[in-house]
């Protein structure tokens, strides 16, 4: 902490603004994986076994997360 170099660009560099740009192409594996995980979890917690269902008439997921589905604002039966 105390050995932080003083930069001419931002003199008060204890908190640095954000100049760096992350290339989406180079980070695509991690970014894509994170987005896929997020969308799948969103779908199964919020939507599945309601309007559409990947497990047909089964209602286990729907019934299990039932209360959170209501509270998070998703439409429910």
């Amino acid at each position: 902490m105390s050995t932080m170099p003083v930069s001419p660009v931002s003199p008060a560099s204890t908190s640095v603004p954000t100049p760096l740009v992350v290339s989406a192409a180079k980070a695509r594996l991690w970014m894509g994986g994170a987005l896929l995980f997020g969308l799948l979890a969103y779908y199964f917690i919020g939507v599945d076994q309601g309007a559409v269902s990947v497990f047909g008439g089964d209602m286990h997921i729907h019934e299990f997360v039932h209360d959170s589905r209501h509270l998070l604002g998703f439409p429910c039966h």
Partner: peptide, 8 residues
């Protein structure tokens, strides 16, 4: 259920 839902 609500815990798993919210943490997920």
């Amino acid at each position: 259920g609500i815990g798993v839902g919210l943490i997920g």
